[in-house]
């Protein structure tokens, strides 16, 4: 039996009185293209931050490729690539400088890094903007350069928080192509999203979060069980039966 790419048990975090993550047991088999879906505030970002070692959990533990995130940081950090949501990059470096900085920080030789950076910039269609400062990049360009930086050291597990938010269709297509190729080689991608169509199209493994818990998890077909993923999701998180606003908002769309 192969080791799971990610496995957490009872992972928990509270901010003050508010419980953000209430005991998450997330499992992602190695080599899968996994989607972590859930409504806003379900605890997706908090969970990913704890697994990548950026946030200290209040309880429970997390393993990446069999190594404990908090006890074996050397092994874990060498294996993961991360693209958090909304967090900044080193804004005053150019796109190329950012990639080279990242690679060299991880101890890759300069010439090797320069070569990889050049290739990544080309694939991401950023060659023209390579010498502009990241602070001047658009949202889509940021996501692409962030992904390039996360891929540069050839990680075996890639964590992406809302990688497609604010990205135009062309760039999104580029991103998915790169990610598909990445998982085809046996590496693992875990990304959070609330765009069900996208998850349905890309993923072979789905974990559904709601209210700080995992409410369903498994291969895509098993989770959706004949329904569309969107319907399955609404059924799971309990949003399907809610009235669609027939009683309120009567003025909306009325004759002006």
């Amino acid at each position: 039996m192969t080791v799971d790419a990610v496995r957490t048990h009872g992972l928990a975090k509270r901010f003050g009185r508010q419980v953000a993550v209430a005991g998450v047991d997330l499992t992602v088999p190695a080599g899968s293209f996994a989607g972590l879906v859930g409504p806003n505030g379900a605890g997706k970002t908090t969970t990913l931050s704890m697994i990548t070692g950026l946030l200290r959990p209040d309880g429970g533990g997390a393993e990446v490729a069999g190594f404990n995130v908090w006890r074996d940081p050397v092994e874990v950090k060498a294996r993961i690539g991360v693209l958090p949501e909304g967090l900044r990059l080193f804004e005053r470096l150019s796109g190329r400088e950012l990639l080279i900085y990242n690679g060299r920080l991880r101890g890759l030789p300069r010439a090797e890094v320069a070569g990889r950076a050049e290739e990544l910039l080309r694939v991401m269609d950023l060659t023209e903007a390579a010498d502009k400062l990241v602070v001047d990049y658009s949202t889509g360009m940021r996501k692409k350069i962030g992904l390039a930086a996360a891929l540069l050291h050839n990680p075996s597990v890639l964590f992406l928080d809302e990688p497609f938010e604010g990205v135009d269709p062309v760039s999104a297509n580029t991103l998915t192509e790169v990610l598909r190729r990445f998982t085809a080689s046996g590496s693992t991608v875990i990304f959070s999203s609330h765009v069900m169509d996208l998850v349905e199209r890309l993923c072979d493994w789905v974990s559904v979060m709601a209210g700080g818990h995992i409410v369903a998890q498994g291969p895509l077909d098993e989770v959706r069980a004949g329904r569309s993923l969107n319907q399955a999701f609404l059924d799971l998180v309990g949003g399907g039966s809610r009235d669609s606003g027939d009683e309120g908002l009567s003025w909306l769309g009325a004759q002006r």
């Binding site: 470096l93 900085y101 060299r104 010498d131 502009k132 400062l133």
Partner: peptide, 30 residues
């Protein structure tokens, strides 16, 4: 936005390759 010059910098060329010179390089740019 305009492009920035992508020179490697004298110090960076003098220092041995590695994380230390990467940090120095980034810091000087900042």
């Amino acid at each position: 936005a305009a492009s920035v010059r992508g020179s490697t910098g004298l110090l960076d060329r003098l220092m041995p390759d590695g994380p230390l010179s990467a940090v120095v390089y980034k810091e000087l740019r900042y």
